[in-house]
Design a protein around this nucleic acid. Structure first.
Lengths: 216, 216
DNA sequence: ACCTGAACACCGTTCAAGT
DNA sequence: ACCTGAACACCGTTCAAGT
């Protein structure tokens, strides 16, 4: 008799439960959704569900991890891209659209990340990794002569991530439409932190160019 | 017989309930605190409490309003202060300390602000007012020759508020200690957006000064 | 007018019993 | 090994009854 545990089934069940939970949370939010509703959506009994997730909070934690994992490769892309500012704006736009698409889910994840110490820890270390990646990408672009940074790479990365967090928060609270106008502000700030390399021919502009409102 | 409603008592009871709720939320967080605990802390029965607040969510909403009202006068101070960047850093530091002081409460307010559409609305309009105040203060400082803005006042205000939101979010999630290091990054960015006025004698520095790491 | 506290409907979680 | 679903403890909210 097959009495040994089946890891493939377990994985399938976890995915099945997570998909059902996401569908429910999108519809009615995290705290308005009951475990019974998730069970119904997943076509499983309560007992079966609790075999794969020890609590409702763990379901949110698993969803948060999934979302966080999707975001990380985007930072990788910055190191490769030709235009750093453009890559950052694309990342920012992606964050807004993604967070706005299902704001209630994003809001819930942020809320839960702040409530649950275990999730906070995971988010903090993910954040540190992203910060390091962005710092390295900026420093590399500077060394390669593709940009001039207006401040040390680590500081610039910190500032950019503060703004990205702000954008995500707005998108979660106000929807993508509420955050999208701020993308232009983000771009303007990024262009002040990450400057194009000095033209090799001549640097004709004097410092008053700083106060010019439009540059292109 | 005194059978007419007593507005003074109602106001006193609401304050009493709010203070009790804040004490409980600080201790155990919003969702871990039961109405029974708030009732006990406020020395009132459940029935009495529901006479003054229609739901638990309304209690959080009232607390959120109180916190929001505390923040607004700080923006007023920027218009008056001599050094705009310094005022902004003080505001940022205040936001970090306040949010970090009772992170669980701040986290709950942010979470609830994103969940409850009525609260979202109130936050959005408060946010718009703060943005306008900051824009006007920056524009006034520029007109007064106290600063040169690296971009239009409205844009600069938008960027600064994105960063302030990011700082508050970090402080709520990681505590004041986790957010405090980012204050230096905030300052560096603010100094790139809000530049000191051109020296009247001579503008000797050429554009390569932009890439200098330290300026003072 | 204001308050009490038992009662109600419902929630997340558990566990004896099935296959 | 995996699943079921009734049962448990507890929650936010209500309401008949008191003063």
């Amino acid at each position: 008799m097959a009495r040994s545990p089946d890891p493939a089934l377990a994985e399938r069940r976890r995915r099945q439960i997570l998909d059902a939970a996401i569908a429910c949370f999108r519809r009615r939010g995290f705290h308005q959704t009951s475990m019974q509703e998730i069970c119904a959506e997943a076509a499983l009994s309560a007992g079966a569900l609790y075999r794969y997730f020890p609590s409702k909070a763990e379901i949110i934690a698993a969803i948060a991890d999934r979302v966080g994992d999707e975001r990380e490769p985007l930072y990788e892309a910055i190191a490769g891209g030709a235009n750093v500012v453009e890559s950052l704006c694309a990342l920012a736009e992606g964050a807004i659209e993604r967070a706005g698409e299902s704001c209630s889910l994003t809001a819930e994840i942020i809320a839960e990340a702040m409530r649950d110490p275990a999730l906070t820890q995971r988010f903090a270390s993910k954040d540190a990794r992203e910060h390091r990646k962005l710092s390295l990408a900026l420093a590399a672009a500077q060394r390669g002569g593709r940009v001039r940074l207006a401040m040390p790479a680590q500081r610039a990365a910190g500032v950019l991530m503060l703004m990205l967090d702000g954008l995500t928060l707005r998108a979660a609270a106000l929807g993508a439409a509420g955050a999208r106008p701020l993308l232009a502000d983000f771009r303007a700030a990024a262009e002040r932190l990450i400057l194009p390399p000095v033209r090799p021919i001549a640097a004709r502009r004097t410092s008053h160019a700083l106060s010019a409102e439009t540059d292109r």
